[in-house]
């Protein structure tokens, strides 16, 4: 599955394993021998049944967790902890509600100590980009869930990271808002050319957004299958609803759905 051209790879995930020990003495293999290479500008979506280690994988890449084995290498240097080069978008609740929208977006550059004028200009641009023009002085709690996620995206982009990591970024949104946000993510991806890893529970979302799609399997958490898909490229310019009418779309969706169903059934069987 690995691409042979490892050398100019942007993000390199090498043979990661993660074993948690539980208080009762037993252990959980959240990840086992996961390897993956991402080129600059690739958008990878990750699917898998609950508990297959998606969040664990993302947290290791973000630098919040140190793997039991293996390593993550970004631009030839190993990842040892969180850094502004790897931005994170959380499902919800990670915005700073004691700051208004502007200050949230400006957080990264402010921490770096960039000149205020430059920050302000950048924030204005980003507000425009994510469609929040005129909302800069609102408080976070005055915004809807969809708007909050736009702020989260803008805050991440303000730092100009090399890689953007998203853990179910649209999971808390309603279906319609979600569709709009999916278009926005595609637009931002194309405009900024960022490398993106996006975890989702929605097969449709994974298909629409993932240029590459990873299906993971649980116990131990591992890569089950990888797809290379055309839908993300199509969706950049087209209506996502049109993309869904693509003849391959429903075929692959059904294939992945039954794959995940099988895994879930297997887990249930094991549990019983």
């Amino acid at each position: 599955m690995n691409k042979p051209d490892n050398h100019n790879a942007n993000l390199q995930i090498d043979n990661l394993s993660m074993t948690f020990s539980l208080p009762d003495g037993s252990t959980v293999e959240a990840l086992k021998n996961v390897s993956l290479n991402l080129q600059q500008g690739e958008l990878l979506s990750v699917l898998g049944p609950s508990g297959c280690g998606k969040t664990t994988l993302l947290n290791i890449v973000a630098g919040f967790l140190a793997p039991s084995e293996g390593q993550v290498v970004l631009n030839q240097h190993p990842v040892n902890g969180p850094d502004a080069e790897r931005g994170m978008v959380f499902q919800q609740g990670a915005l700073f509600e004691w700051m208004n929208v502007r200050k949230n977006i400006a957080f990264g550059p402010t921490m770096k100590g960039l000149p205020e004028k430059q920050i302000n200009q950048h924030v204005d641009e980003l507000l425009e980009t994510v469609g929040l023009h005129g909302f800069g002085n609102k408080h976070i709690y005055e915004l809807s869930g969809g708007m909050q996620q736009r702020v989260a995206l803008a805050r991440c982009l303000a730092n100009d990271p090399d890689v953007i990591l998203m853990d179910e970024p649209l999971g808390a949104l309603d279906a319609l808002t979600r569709e709009k946000m999916q278009s926005l993510i595609l637009k931002l991806w194309k405009e900024t050319g960022k490398t993106i890893i996006l975890i989702t529970h929605s097969v449709e979302e994974a298909l629409l957004l993932g240029e590459r799609l990873l299906v993971m399997a649980p116990r131990p958490g591992r890569i089950h299958k990888e797809y290379h898909l055309p839908f993300a490229q199509l969706g950049v310019d087209a209506d996502l609803r049109e993309v869904k009418k693509h003849p391959d779309f429903s075929k692959i969706r059904e294939e992945i759905l039954s794959m995940i169903w099988e895994m879930e059934e297997e887990i249930m069987g094991k549990a019983i």
Partner: peptide
């Protein structure tokens, strides 16, 4: 303080002291 806020701040390049002053302190007010 929710851990995702702290994680977000570190991912945005904040130092420990900045996390304390800009996240933990205001969040605990």
């Amino acid at each position: 303080v929710s851990i995702s806020k702290v994680h977000a701040a570190y991912s945005l390049g904040a130092s420990k002291f900045q996390v304390l002053m800009h996240v933990i302190v205001p969040n605990s007010l």
